[in-house]
């Protein structure tokens, strides 16, 4: 493993309180909207992926990925 880069999702003025549930969900949707618009391999979307991975518990990401595959994801994609 190469030298790690100390970097994480920045503070977001849309979510200024202790409750960061929406922050994680929004970043997840932003990533998938981005890949839908720019294509799966687009490098521009990677930062959103980093953000939601930093903010969302792994269990939630797994569940949402499953829901997207089954077509019953509750958010706007």
């Amino acid at each position: 493993m190469a030298e790690i880069e100390i970097k994480t999702a920045p503070a977001d003025f849309r979510f200024p309180t202790a409750n960061q549930t929406r922050h994680c969900f929004t970043r997840y949707i932003e990533y998938h909207k981005c890949t839908a618009a720019k294509g799966e391999g687009s490098g521009d979307c990677q930062k959103f992926a980093q953000y939601y991975r930093s903010l969302c518990p792994g269990e939630w990401i797994e569940r949402w990925n499953e829901q997207r595959e089954n077509g019953n994801f509750p958010g706007p994609l």
């Binding site: 100390i6 994480t8 999702a9 503070a11 200024p16 202790a18 930093s54 903010l55 518990p57 792994g58």
Partner: peptide
């Protein structure tokens, strides 16, 4: 204590 302004360096869940 509630303030969420500073950009953190690391997120730990």
């Amino acid at each position: 204590m509630d303030e969420v302004v500073v950009d953190p360096a690391i997120t730990i869940k």
